[in-house]
């Protein structure tokens, strides 16, 4: 009897531990197991929430940290098994220089890149979306185009305005050179009055973004996967070349 008791307790503990991890999974995901899939030659980079720059944002903000993404982009470029990249965007914008850094990195990747704007790709999300080889926008997704702003301590001298103006030009130049939108049209949308409540700019919805030439097409996951596979077949699948 005395020998049996500790064993029974052990069994009980084991089942409790197994049960608790299952309960934990159900609590977090609402399911016990997640599906498994074969290795993918297409990687996914998600840009969500705010694009975080040099200042760490409070923990309640959902952020994308550029220092996390830049090494991942390098890894994607270097890994011969990765043949294509899909960029998922659902961002409210954020730090201009962090966003431009990401955009330039995406634009300079040699592998096929396709972006999808899902809920919103606002402000600095616009250059990130157009940085890819081909861009898609969901029919319900929107992109807010507006002039850049500055928060924090601002020194009230004319040079501050000049600095802001130059930063504005960097964003405009990038978007114009990586999409089919004309500079005049983009500036017109950016400085339009009466579209946004108490603000300057335009909220461009899916179909309009394509009409303006900002985004290449309307679509979602299916279209993006087809496009990236098409681009991979055009470049001849670098991954296979390295293995041979």
């Amino acid at each position: 009897m005395t020998n049996d008791t500790p064993n029974k307790n052990d069994d009980k503990q084991d089942t409790q531990q197994g049960g608790s991890s299952l309960v934990q999974k159900i609590q977090q995901l609402g399911q016990a197991n997640v599906a498994q899939a074969p290795d993918s030659n297409i990687h996914v980079l998600s840009i969500i929430g705010q694009v975080e720059g040099h200042v760490q944002l409070p923990p309640q903000n959902k952020t994308t940290k550029y220092e996390h993404l830049l090494p991942q982009l390098i890894a994607i470029e270097q890994n011969p098994k990765i043949e294509g990249l899909i960029i998922l965007l659902n961002t409210v914008g954020g730090d201009v220089e962090a966003g431009l850094a990401l955009s330039e990195m995406i634009a300079s990747i040699s592998k096929p890149t396709v972006s999808i704007v899902l809920g919103g790709g606002h402000s600095i999300g616009v250059p990130i979306a157009v940085a890819s080889d081909y861009s898609y926008i969901a029919p319900t997704a929107t992109m807010t185009i507006h002039p850049i702003r500055l928060t924090g301590l601002v020194i009230g001298v004319p040079q501050t305005f000049e600095y802001l103006d130059k930063m504005q030009d960097r964003v405009i130049d990038f978007v114009v050179s990586h999409s089919h939108i004309k500079e005049d049209k983009f500036k017109e949308l950016m400085f339009a009055k009466g579209n946004l409540t108490r603000d300057i700019g335009t909220n461009v919805v899916g179909k309009d973004a394509v009409e303006y030439g900002l985004i290449d097409g309307i679509g979602g996951v299916k279209e993006a996967m087809q496009k990236v596979n098409e681009l991979i077949s055009q470049t001849g699948g670098q991954g296979e070349g390295v293995i041979q």
């Binding site: 999974k25 997640v34 996914v44």
Partner: peptide, 11 residues
């Protein structure tokens, strides 16, 4: 923090 979609399927 991963770009491999399969990592997100790992329990």
């Amino acid at each position: 923090l991963s770009t491999d979609p399969n990592d997100f399927l790992n329990g």
